[in-house]
Nucleic acid binder design. Structure first.
Lengths: 172, 172
DNA sequence: AGGTATTCCATGGGAGATCATGGGAAGCAA
DNA sequence: TTGCTTCCCATGATCTCCCATGGAATACCT
């Protein structure tokens, strides 16, 4: 099992569009970058997606390659495959971390998210997301809270988890 | 069967946010940490959850990975999965035990729980929880008592336990 | 049993490393 | 040139790591 992204963080964006990647995320990016051995600096992939996507989704090189492999399993020329190729190939970019752990967020993306001088990072399973803080609060945070609330006071999210298949549980 | 957390304890928080993990919990954390072999120090994961969560839930690495594996069984992009990812990936952090058995509780979490200079630990099954002592008294202690009371005077909690399936009971 | 040594534990402080962030100079493109 | 990008250096603030202390609990000795 490889390193995972964990946690969330708000970081500043300076006048040059530079953003510090949260320090906790950096080792994960490094460990997901196979090319590093050749003296390159660690990099990862930002998927900005279609017009309606209001956040950026970031994958390690290893993870994005897994996704690409899954796309290649799909039927050539199918609509579904086209959609995924447009998102993951056509609307994505590779960025490099500087020695100081920062990236430059291109003006195009800052405009797309309507970013000010702050950006919000939050870890997912195999990726992390970057949001305009206000957008996250309005859409995501409130939505999660609402979803939790509508299940009632005593609701324990852990109860949503499916059971592990018996042999996997035993392997532990 | 691995070691389990047991008991409860109130510990101090010093000016730097340092907290001694109860000595009884430490061997359990160590035994749940696979990476230890590589010379790392024992670590575990604190899940602090969404705004409404008024305590911290702490899992060994082994246990959190079980949870992550269960999340991965869920449908990509479903609401339920999003909630769990937000909680277990987006609102969690890995902490390392120092040689002296302490962790640093970041200011962010101390603020979230409104902690003073004391913190209350209580063991669960595969995890332990950390509470602001006063909050625990107000919410949890009272709640458990109330739940017990509403079952009547003679109620014996052990009667809630399901029976072990016969072969598992024998294996023990 | 009484007293003493030893270990483990909780807690505190200081030096050095890491991190977020800012600015200037050098390279590049229009 | 003019504007933009990349690289390098600088600076507080915070966080880590290491060392020190005193107390409690346990083991040990006589």
């Amino acid at each position: 099992m490889s390193l995972r992204f964990r946690g969330n963080e708000t970081q500043g964006i300076d006048g040059k569009g530079r953003v510090s990647i949260p320090a906790d995320f950096r080792p994960v990016i490094v460990s997901g970058d196979h090319r590093m051995a050749q003296g390159e600096r660690p990099s990862f992939v930002i998927v900005y997606g279609t017009r309606s996507q209001n956040h950026l989704k970031c994958y390690t090189l290893r993870e994005i390659e897994k996704i690409e492999a899954r796309i290649e399993l799909m039927d050539d020329g199918s609509d579904d495959r086209e959609i995924l190729e447009t998102i993951f190939h056509g609307s994505a970019m590779t960025v490099q971390l500087g020695d100081d752990g920062r990236i430059v967020l291109p003006a195009k993306l800052r405009t797309k998210l309507d970013l000010g001088d702050k950006i919000f990072f939050i870890a997912g399973n195999d990726h992390f997301k970057m949001w305009k803080p206000e957008t996250y609060d309005d859409f995501e945070n409130d939505r999660t809270d609402a979803l939790l609330r509508e299940r009632g006071d005593r609701f324990n999210p852990t109860s949503l988890l499916p059971k592990l298949p018996p042999q996997a549980a035993a392997a532990e």
